[in-house]
Simulated scan of single mutants.
Amino acid sequence: MNDADAAPPQGESRLIDHLIELRARLLRAVLGLVIVFVALLPFANRLYAWLAKPLLAKLPAGGQLIATGVVSPFFAPVKLAFFAALFVSVPWLLYQAWAFVAPGLYQREKKLALPLLVSAVSLFYAGCAFAYFLVLPAVFAFLTRVTPEGVAMMTDIQAYLDFVLVIFLAFGASFEVPVALVILALLGWVTPRQLKESRGYAVVGVFVVAAIITPPDVVSQLMLAIPMCILYEVGIIAAAWVAPAGPREP
């Protein structure tokens, strides 16, 4: 048997190279996340104190969070530090994914994919910031007003963390509407004209989604629905700009 017979097929060799590259990118991504997580651990309690400000600011004087679980005072800040590390590391994680897939993309796909990634990350961050600085204070102001007289509002730190993370995820994901519309237009599944004609259905759907994922008060529902409607219009404009030109209609 000669060397040519012993050598692996070209396709198999390329697959092995891709798997090695994928492993390297995954290891770099995980290593970056671990480094950020370890760096944030000493500040875990400060991070939780910062996260609790929207609620504590609306509680009566002397109001505070409580820990009903024995290990909650330890695990809640550590859990927050991990999610904060994940939040901070998103650009690094996406860069590793981009570096892996970019060599296989055409030039036009590269020109479109990179702005979409940057826009998606920026909009997710914007949604989380909007939730923290505007939505959470409004929600907690409403909840403190409707608390029955004689009832002390003392929330468990783990329950509070879970609630805030869900709100962050909901608003961060909701702010991705323009990116989602652009991707649908690029795939040819919808056209800008169809998006305009479906505007009424989209508005109804937005308010239904807002009613489902927000607390039961009108203020928070409007604070999610109105930005989503605006972002829907932004998505239509962006989709019209990047959508492939089709045949002219008579």
Rank of each mutant, 00 (worst) to 15 (best):
K110W: 07
E12W: 05
G127S: 00
S122T: 13
F133W: 10
L27H: 10
K53Q: 15
I16P: 00
L33G: 08
P77R: 04
F124C: 01
V38I: 14
F100E: 02
V90L: 15
V70D: 14
P73F: 08
L51N: 01
L59M: 02
W92Y: 13
G32K: 00
V78P: 06
G62H: 00
F37T: 03
P103N: 02
P54A: 07
L15Q: 08
L80P: 07
I16K: 04
G69N: 05
L94T: 09
F130D: 02
A138W: 01
V30R: 07
P77D: 03
L33V: 14
A76V: 15
A24M: 13
V121T: 05
L123K: 01
Y125D: 02
A141L: 13
P42L: 09
A76N: 07
K53W: 11
A120P: 06
Y106M: 12
A81S: 14
A85G: 13
L47E: 11
A131I: 02
Y132P: 02
E12G: 06
W98R: 04
I66L: 06
K110E: 10
P115N: 03
A141K: 11
F43V: 14
V88E: 07
A81Y: 08
S89T: 14
A129G: 10
P42A: 09
P42Q: 11
K53D: 14
V101F: 11
V38C: 14
N45K: 15
I35M: 13
P137R: 02
L41N: 06
V70M: 12
V139C: 09
S89Q: 15
V101L: 08
Q64C: 06
L31Q: 03
V121K: 00
C128W: 01
A99F: 09
A97Y: 09
P137W: 07
H18L: 10
Y132L: 04
A85V: 12
L134H: 03
P54S: 04
A113W: 02
K110F: 04
Y48C: 13
N45G: 15
L136I: 05
L56N: 03
F83H: 09
A120T: 07
A49E: 13
F74Y: 13
A97N: 04
L51V: 14
A76E: 11
P42I: 13
V118R: 10
R145F: 12
L86R: 07
P137N: 01
F83G: 09
A44R: 13
A113R: 00
V36I: 13
